[in-house]
Design a protein around this nucleic acid. Structure first.
Length: 228
DNA sequence: TGCCAGGCCGGGT
DNA sequence: ACCCGGCATGGC
């Protein structure tokens, strides 16, 4: 399959290729090309969860600075973080951008975690996948991608994470319509792959890696892309 | 220099 | 049910 040399996201899907094979081939192509990505960058489930909220529409490098601040202040634990006044918290996570709204979002999450699960992620993650997802989505500031990131990378449960890169890559390669919603794109993967935490982990990380190198918004066509 | 980064929410049509 | 503005820092 080739990516056309145009600036639109309107490419014809080769109907001779079965979608199941496309999704699975894409994974092996990316894995062969880039190798394992070792995601999520973060030492503990709690650090991963905090990172998932802080990285919303934000460069990961900035998130690292914010997390580094939290570590230096020795507050990267549920009760300690919850004990921080919102203004203090906002100051520490300043480098991650949107620090005021993210401080609120972190506190919204911590409020639920501490009040309903005694500040124990382990307890919260005992919920079955779908219930955990609903629980996370009920928190103001946690949307579908953040919820799925927490479920996959912190709770180690098999949900597929869809992000801007995933959409852009699939759309440009004619695997989904440009205006496909989150659930539709998620389903493209989940309906064709056996649920597997390790593989879902690697697949999403590989799509992000591919996106950073070959699928920027302003560079719609790149002959070096391993998928073309 | 401007553009972009691993979104999400709330208010207005 | 969509559409859009707001939120903000730091790196290239």
């Amino acid at each position: 399959m080739r990516l056309g040399n145009n600036t639109k996201d309107t490419l014809s899907l080769d109907i001779r290729m079965k979608p199941k094979l496309l999704v699975q081939n894409t994974y092996s192509i990316l894995y062969r090309h880039f190798g394992p990505q070792h995601w999520w960058p973060g030492d503990t489930p709690f650090e991963i969860t905090v990172g998932a909220i802080l990285t919303q529409n934000t460069n990961w490098g900035n998130v690292e600075k914010a997390i580094s601040n939290l570590k230096r202040a020795v507050v990267l634990r549920p009760r300690k973080l919850y004990a921080l006044p919102e203004k203090k918290l906002a100051g520490l996570i300043r480098p991650s951008g949107y620090f005021n709204i993210k401080a609120k979002r972190l506190r919204a999450f911590l409020t639920l975690l501490c009040n309903r699960y005694g500040g124990s992620l382990k307890r919260m993650f005992r919920l079955p996948l779908q219930e955990l997802r609903e629980e996370l989505l009920s928190i103001n500031g946690i949307g579908e991608e953040t919820a799925d990131s927490i479920i996959l990378y912190a709770a180690d449960k098999p949900t597929f994470v869809v992000d801007a890169y995933t959409r852009r890559i699939l759309s440009r390669h004619g695997l989904c319509s440009p205006d496909a919603g989150y659930a539709a794109v998620k389903d493209i993967f989940e309906s064709r792959l056996k649920p597997d935490v390790k593989m879902f982990n690697e697949y999403h990380a590989l799509l992000v890696r591919l996106g950073k190198v070959f699928c920027r918004p302003r560079n719609p066509f790149c002959a070096e892309c391993p998928l073309t």
